[in-house]
Amino acid sequence: MTPEPLLVANGLVAGYKEPVVGPFSIAVGVGEVVGLWGANGSGKSTLLRAIANRARIFAGTLEHSSRLTLAWQMQQPVRLDEMPLNGHDYLRYARADRVAPPARLAPWLDRRIDALSGGQFQLLAVWAILGGRSDLVMLDEPTNNLDPGSEQLLVEMLRSEQGHRAALVVSHERQFLDQACSRIFELGE
């Protein structure tokens, strides 16, 4: 049975001053984890920006419900030099309260987020998005700074029940996408 579509792109061509990616067609349904794979410069991040209304659409259509809520983790999560927030604060302000965070994150929640390592912060930042209640979650290169163990935890986070929402995951790591996603689209084919 085809899942109920949350987002449908038909012949989408997107970019900034000039087109960067497309034409590209995709339908993302409820409960799916869809991977976007491609070489550097193939326009993976631009596609996410177009969905988030931060890039120009030159041709094609992009359809979704007007009530669709979107959570987008950019390639570099915001990390200031000084951040007087601990992990609990960070997740509270992200409204990541859909389910309890994974046990692996628990020891880091009482620490200031600017005292976490790059990998610890990356996992927390991904959970801040995944733990929320948005209909469509977009993760851009979520494996940045992660060692193999943390990458496996990320796979488990994505493979766990997504409920009535979908995830769109951009990565240049094919093996990670193979493990985490139900479908993979290749850009620049």
Binding site: T69, L70, W72, M74, V78, Y93
Partner: peptide, 16 residues
Amino acid sequence: IPVLVRARMFPGLEIP
């Protein structure tokens, strides 16, 4: 405060 902190830390969450 919640809106301002969220906008600063999570710019991808405030799109809608």
